[in-house]
Write a protein that binds this DNA or RNA. Structure first.
Lengths: 250, 250
DNA sequence: ACCTGAACACCGTTCAAGT
DNA sequence: ACCTGAACACCGTTCAAGT
């Protein structure tokens, strides 16, 4: 099937396909978005690229290296959805929403990334965005860092958790999701009075409500911690909080 | 290697081993606690039990079924670490701490469970515990359920995230963890002023601080939401909050 | 009735061989 | 210089064969 070799530098030696880190990353995003069981395997990737699966190892040391590169792309996609000029709370809220949206677009990637760090450009940009937001909120030093991590890690974990759930084969997912309306409905009223008293609510609650509660809890925490910090450094004027602390440093 | 067969009912037909769901679950916990790459594979399990790997399929439909059973055991172990009689906030705090402790004891299990529901007895007990705590805090109905899920899902996700990180081969883990003190230290001061200004703090922050901030954020949210709810139903006496609402219903 | 073990359809990865 | 593809050491799972 493979034919000839034109000597144009950088041109393909194969019919229609050319191999480069870029091309491999883009193929990964395509198959990841398509979903399914083999959504991110080297064999599936070889198929998508029209080349031998192991050719990928010419451009990435191993699959983990590729994953980090692909994941960093998805971080960039989430970032692009966050408009400039929003006040810090809306900025973080939007970042959380975009992270979830993009994460669900590439579930294999985000489920594998939930406990990772890409150490790549777009991650730097996200860290900078969150640090800027918590600074604007009024946090600095170790406080800024702890609360940035609290927020960032939490979003990452939630998105990964949700993506992993979505990836399950329908039968298993259905088992997990319908538990609230099936198994929990059969709970013994004596041993589990609270569950028994809330079966309807347990079955009706949505992921959106849960995510919103979680994000707002974190944003509230940042705001309150900033208020505490201000009360210490500036015991008098705790009235009008953030006009000056809002100034960006570039 | 396998020998003879004594006909005692329930006794082993093999030297030293006997197969039952119970024995398989306990073997799973042992190998999971021991850690390593093959910490939870059917072949490793067969080795631990001194039987053929596929014998497990006599007692569990598939590996997922076994995982849920094993995971439910670990939930029980976490529950056992939560003393009775604690006020709601301490009860949830202790549950979070115990979940992390037990989760790190069986990292393979907790990383696989992060997005799952066991639908088994100990999960019921944990749900009941959390629902009881948020009730004591002053939440009811949909509010109680949303905040229970917020708390429960968040703890599960964090523990899974942390366990997955711990499971990485040393080289990859070191890459991820040292990122803060290596790659981030090299960040361009022009493009990433906040990162550059906080490199020391980024490298110094601990998982314990981050977890504590996260848990306290969730507990604060529950408390404040309960205060809002009280203000609506009982606009007058928002002063002494929880003495009566504390009453358990059994 | 219960366990065995060969076999199947997958993984990620290596490396000698091709061009 | 770059890609190929057989091969290796793994997975979870099935099923005919043993006892």
């Amino acid at each position: 099937m493979a034919t000839h070799s034109s000597a144009r530098p950088g041109a393909s030696k194969r019919s229609g396909s050319q191999l480069s880190p870029e091309a491999i990353i883009e193929a990964s995003l395509r198959v990841a978005a398509r979903g399914g069981d083999d959504a991110f395997t080297v064999r599936r990737l070889g198929q998508e690229l029209g080349c031998d699966p192991t050719a990928i190892y010419r451009h990435f040391r191993d699959k983990d290296e590729l994953l980090l590169s692909v994941a960093d792309r998805t971080l960039g996609e989430a970032l692009d959805g966050v408009p400039h000029g929003l006040p810090w709370r809306d900025r973080l809220r939007t970042l959380a929403a975009e992270s979830l949206r993009v994460g669900m677009k590439y579930p294999v990637v985000s489920s594998l990334m939930a406990s990772r760090t890409t150490r790549r450009p777009n991650e730097f940009r996200i860290v900078e965005l969150i640090l800027g937001a918590v600074h604007e909120a009024g946090l600095s030093g170790p406080d800024a860092v702890v609360h940035y991590r609290m927020f960032g890690d939490s979003v990452l974990a939630y998105v990964g958790q949700h993506a992993a759930l979505q990836m399950f084969a329908p039968t298993e997912r259905e088992g997990d999701e319908s538990a609230w309306s099936r198994e929990y409905r059969l709970a013994d009223r004596q041993r589990f009075p609270y569950i028994a008293g809330l079966v309807e609510e347990l079955a009706a609650v949505t992921h959106e409500e849960i995510y919103a509660a979680r994000i707002e809890a974190l944003l509230d925490k940042i705001e309150r911690r900033a208020a505490e910090a201000r009360a210490v450094t500036d015991p008098a004027g705790a009235g009008a909080p953030s006009a000056e602390t809002t100034a960006q440093q570039r």
